[in-house]
């Protein structure tokens, strides 16, 4: 297997995710063993309510794992202190921005917070990283615009740029394509692909755009009620994983085109 030769950024060991309550644990998924390599673009797909968000929350250490471990750079995430974790992992959430009165530059510069001094002064290096992040996402021309002046598509680029400025090995995005039109969905995922290749960062995103993910991702993680599968899109198609993803009374996966078709 290739797995042994690649540089692993994130790895899970027999991970169980779910919610812990006083009486009993509600397990959402168990025996999860996945590895994310350096410079890979990985798509996390699965139906609504299957636990994609819980999975991401567990990987980012915002929620406790029921059992098993998550390692980032060979170190258990639960042993990182907050600031150290912020220097290896950046996150792009789905939630709307609270303050849209920030300029694009100011917002992207906030990504440098884990590195700046007590009052948040930007050093030469910080400025370089911020400007580089703006260039990589093609938003240098928007630099002085306020966030409320931007479209949803532009705003998403700004948020990705902010994560880049944070300069972490791993970037995790929670449904980065929601609220976007078809063109911008493709644009955003294509951008992520480009960033993973050019910067060598590992990028993991959850999405409902399975057809786009199949075309663009190096690897995919498919969440199903019983288990979690992770492999390259081609192998997953060959194994027929996508045809079991949804009940086949309404839509069916077409292995030839790599997309879903509505039953006529």
């Amino acid at each position: 297997m290739k797995v042994h030769t690649k540089h692993i950024i994130l790895k899970t060991e027999d991970l169980s995710i779910g919610y812990r309550s006083k009486k009993n644990d509600h397990v959402i998924s168990k025996h999860i063993n996945i590895t994310l390599g350096k410079g890979e673009l990985i798509g996390l797909v699965g139906g609504n309510g299957i636990g994609k968000s819980t999975m991401l929350r567990t990987l980012t250490n915002t929620q406790m794992a029921l059992s098993g471990h998550v390692f980032i750079n060979d170190k258990d995430v639960s042993t990182y202190d907050a600031l150290a974790l912020a220097q290896v992992l950046s996150i792009v959430f789905t939630e709307k921005l609270t303050s849209k009165n920030l300029s694009v530059f100011e917002l992207v510069a906030l990504g440098r917070q884990p590195y700046t001094n007590w009052i948040g002064t930007l050093s030469e290096i910080d400025l370089q990283k911020v400007n580089h992040a703006l260039e990589l996402t093609n938003i240098t021309s928007l630099k002085h615009k306020k966030c409320f002046e931007l479209s949803d598509g532009q705003l998403q680029k700004v948020m990705i740029s902010r994560a880049l400025a944070q300069d972490t090995d791993l970037i995790i995005l929670d449904e980065p394509t929601t609220h976007l039109d078809m063109y911008h969905k493709a644009y955003t995922l294509k951008l992520l692909k480009k960033l993973a290749k050019e910067t060598g960062k590992t990028i993991l995103f959850s999405s409902h755009e399975i057809d786009l993910a199949i075309q663009l991702c190096d690897n995919m993680i498919v969440m199903m009620p019983e288990h979690v599968v992770s492999d390259s899109p081609c192998n997953l198609i060959q194994q027929g994983v996508f045809s079991t993803l949804f009940p086949d009374d309404l839509i069916q996966f077409d292995a030839e085109t790599g997309s879903f078709r509505v039953n006529k």
Binding site: I91, F93, T98, T116, G120
Partner: peptide
């Protein structure tokens, strides 16, 4: 309040982002 300036700016992004940026 002066020592909280950095935290306040981080909080502009919302609690989740603030946490992901390593803010206590």
């Amino acid at each position: 309040s002066l020592t909280s300036i950095k935290a306040l700016n981080t909080l502009l992004l919302g609690d989740n982002y603030a946490k992901s940026l390593g803010l206590n």
